[in-house]
Write a protein that binds this DNA or RNA. Structure first.
Lengths: 132, 132
DNA sequence: GACGAAAACAATAATCATTACTGTTTTGGA
DNA sequence: TCCAAAACAGTAATGATTATTGTTTTCGTC
């Protein structure tokens, strides 16, 4: 009896929107992009659904960059380059790290390591070209 | 003639407070801790001075954890374990990563890499013990 | 030791991203 | 088509952070 709906026109559009770009959008970016096409879309709906997708693992959040939460359509392991000039977030394919690093971190802290995140800081290709 | 002061009673207390702990405090934590000892301290002063210290490189921010910016008295290269249970942030000593990783990230993105951040996610020692 | 301009401050208001609430609309199985 | 649950728009509320304004502290100078 208990129905848990997984789809609605707007929810689908929001997911499609996130999946349409590799720019690691913010909630507001998604909203602005969909608004012309769905005039009665509400920013709250975007926030709510992004939180939902994130919760269920359909998308990921890569954290807060410059005060704004950034979402990622990719859920496979990989890293990011965060441009300190334009705040662009660029994907970097997963790279092998020494297997011992997590063991070492666990040993040092006495805790349990379930994952890790490697993030690069620098300039994206465009800003690098400009700064030259 | 132009004086740029680097010290004041409150500023010093704020820095001393951050340096007194390895808990990677938030602005509010610092405020709450100093308030009893300095009753006329203002939260805005804590924010302003933390931003100043961060700006000049006296302390670091390790980013936003659970919506709160966390500061770090350590400015030497090292990593952190972020407890997904209690949000505690625990230091992990810097570990050698393959020298090629930054080159590889630069190659993939076409950008310039100036630094990287490795963050562990899991349980701190206390939460690990509790969860058992 | 007092003086004064610049810096630092408290108190408060303003911002801004995000979340919660309320009443309405949409959805999809019966 | 009907209807209860879910989703939604619109709006208010929240909470961390930042800016503003008028007052106080600081510290080099006299």
């Amino acid at each position: 009896m208990e129905q848990v709906r997984k789809h609605s026109r707007k929810r689908d559009a929001i997911l499609r929107c996130v999946r349409s770009t590799d720019c690691h959008p913010t909630a507001d970016w998604v909203f602005s992009r969909l608004k012309p096409e769905i005039p009665d879309l509400s920013l709250g709906t975007v926030y709510r659904n992004l939180a939902m997708f994130k919760e269920e693992g359909t998308i990921l959040s890569l954290g807060v960059v410059n005060g704004l939460e950034r979402f990622d359509r990719r859920i496979d392991p990989h890293s990011h380059l965060i441009c300190q000039c334009c705040s662009r977030v660029v994907d970097v394919e997963a790279m092998d790290l020494p297997e011992t690093i997590c063991q070492e971190a666990a040993r040092q802290t006495g805790g349990a390591i379930t994952g890790w995140k490697l993030q690069f800081v620098g300039l994206c290709d465009k800003c690098k070209a400009t700064q030259k």
